[in-house]
Amino acid sequence: MRDLTNEILELIRRTSSDLPADVEERLRAAIEKEAPGSAARGALETILKNVELSRENSSPICQDTGTPIFYVKHPEGWSTRKLREQIRTALAEATRKSYMRPNAVDAIYDKNSGNNLGGDDFPYIHFEEVEGDELTIELMLKGGGCENVGIQYSLPNAALGAGRDLAGVRKVVLDAVHKAQGQGCAPGILGVAIGGDRGSGYVKSKEVLFEKLGTRNPDPKLAELEERLTQEANQMGIGPMGFGGQTTVIDTKITGLHRLPASYFVTVSYMCWAYRRRKMTVKSNGEVVYD
């Protein structure tokens, strides 16, 4: 089996230092909506200068290089055991090269492992066998500031008047945006899972964040709610960094899951503006391309 360690190292470098074009484009567009001389506009201008510098220097966009979340989709015949080892080796090397901050801290003994490897679950790696002959590895780096403002609601929620329907979902998601204020490094991107259990809700609310900005849920009811939530969240005026301003949320992505009759969870994962996600594809001819 081919050794992909160097290619995965390159995936990590790109993810940490090179913000995807669709995100940068939205941030640029957001500048024009903020008043000249305002703190919000200043924040966005600084953000974009930083994006350019990080790309030039191959240095992390954000010092919090986050939880590394890998999604590996492989054709039949690949060894997931070997791929896991290659990912872990590449991650330790990326840490040595300062593409990544050592971020894995033993929660019981407060000890930082120093190389981003910790137990079986850090980094988080999801494997899935797929049809065809292309292997893809997607990586998302999700910082702690935005992870901390993620939230799960159990409906009905009396305080918000939220029942078990999309009207209720809308209410709790808007509440989540208000609660987050600028803490999650606004402008943010919302990943929302409706249904599932507590665990799958969080997993799926992050999984939807792998999709490109502007991709709408194929269900028109959810697509409409996605658009509406982004627009209404921006009415709150929280703005970049929570300074007050026009752009609080860049996009919203919703996924619907099955739930138990007894449970109705709405899980919101908040992604910061430093929306670091990249994909590498190993084509059938062996060529490796990055997106």
């Binding site: 600084t46 953000i47 930083n50 990080s54 220097n57 240095s59 992390p60 954000c62 000890k111």
Partner: peptide, 28 residues
Amino acid sequence: HAIGGAATYIAQSVEKVLGVYKYDFGVP
């Protein structure tokens, strides 16, 4: 308030690291 996430940009204004205490807390 500094700009969250503007890490490379802000690092440019750090001229020098003079020292470190409590390194055993971990780099961050």
